[in-house]
Amino acid sequence: MSQDESGRYRAGQTALLATVAEAEPLVEHWRRRFDTSAAAGVPAHVTVLFPFLDTNLINAAVIADLATLIAGHDPFTVRFDECGRFPDVLYLAPAPDRLLRALTESIAARWPEAPPYGGQFAEVIPHLTVAHGQPPRVLDEVEAELTHRLPATATISSVSLFVSDGQRWRHHTEFPMLGASISTSLRQPSSESIHNS
C-alpha cells in the first residue's frame, strides 16, 4: 500500500489485505517507526489488491462476490525465510508465494477496473513491508536485526477489506478462505454499510 503524492491516503480508497498476525511480534517495532501504513492503522499484512474499488462503488453485490470468490480459495501456510528489497523498501518475502499471487489474480480478473497498484508494475510480487522511505543504511540495520529472528511461519486463512478516511485505515469486512468446505460452511460477511465504517 502506498500514499498519494501529497503524502496522504485518499478518503474512499479501499484495500484487500491478507493480515499476518503471526508476524506482528517480529515487525511491529520496525513498522511503527518506518512504515506509515502502520501509523494509519494497518496491521502487518501482504497486500492482495490495492487500490480496490472506491467506497462509492462497493455495494452488497460486490461484497457478496468477494465473499464467494475468496471462499473458493483454500487456507495455506507461508514461511518468511528472508528479506527482500524494492527501491526504498525492505520487506519479508513469503514462500511459497504462488497462492498469494493466485488470490490477487482471481480478484483482479473479476474487477479489471482495479488492477494491482493501479497497473504500475508488470509483475506483482507478494511481500510484507517492514520499512520504506529510509536511507539504505537504515534498511540494512533493520534487515540485519530481522534476519536473526527468521524464519517465521503464518497461516493465510482470510482476506480483509480495509477502508481509508484519508487519515486512518479501518477494518471493514473479513472474507474467510474456505476451499473444499465452501459448500457447507460459507459464512456471510457483515452486512454493515461500507459508508458507516
Rank of each mutant, 00 (worst) to 15 (best):
A44I: 12
F121Q: 12
S181Q: 13
L146Q: 11
E105A: 14
L146G: 10
H195W: 08
P94L: 01
R33F: 04
P115S: 00
S183R: 15
G41W: 08
G133R: 10
V159L: 12
E82M: 02
Y9E: 12
F86D: 13
P115H: 00
S185Q: 11
L26I: 13
V163N: 06
E5L: 14
S158I: 03
L57I: 02
V62I: 05
S183N: 08
E28Q: 14
E113F: 02
A11M: 09
S37K: 15
Y117V: 05
H45M: 06
Y91K: 05
T104I: 04
R31C: 06
A39Y: 02
M1W: 05
P43D: 03
F34V: 05
A152G: 07
N56G: 04
T14N: 09
T184G: 01
T55M: 01
R33N: 10
S181D: 13
Q134T: 02
F52W: 05
L178H: 06
T147S: 13
F76S: 01
Q13T: 11
P94E: 01
L139A: 04
T68L: 15
S197G: 02
E82W: 06
A95Y: 10
G119T: 09
A61W: 13
E24R: 14
Q134S: 03
R32Y: 09
D81F: 00
V159W: 06
H148E: 12
E5D: 13
A154P: 11
E192C: 05
S181H: 14
R137W: 15
S106A: 13
Q120S: 10
E174D: 12
L186T: 09
L17H: 13
L178A: 04
H195L: 11
H45A: 01
S37Y: 10
V163S: 03
A108L: 08
A114P: 10
T147I: 07
A38V: 02
P94N: 02
H195N: 12
V159I: 15
E143C: 01
L66M: 14
A39C: 08
S190K: 14
V163L: 12
A38G: 02
L53H: 14
G179S: 03
I194T: 06
Y91I: 01
A95W: 12
V159S: 04
L161T: 07
L49V: 09
A114Y: 11
P51A: 00
G41Q: 07
E24P: 14
R137A: 13
A152K: 14
V138K: 09
L66Q: 10
A93S: 06
W169F: 01
A60C: 01
H172Y: 09
A152H: 15
L161P: 07
Q13S: 15
T68H: 15
E24V: 11
P96N: 00
N196G: 09
R187Y: 03
V138Q: 10
P151C: 00
W30D: 13
A11W: 07
S160A: 08
E28C: 03
I70R: 05
L186C: 03
P126L: 00
P116C: 00
A180H: 13
V78T: 03
P115M: 00
R168V: 06
R85N: 07
R98N: 07
H172M: 00
V130H: 05
R10N: 05
H195C: 04
F121N: 11
S158M: 07
E141K: 11
T19Q: 06
D4K: 05
Y117Q: 10
V89P: 07
F86C: 11
R187K: 14
S160K: 06
I182G: 02
A23N: 10
L57H: 15
R10I: 08
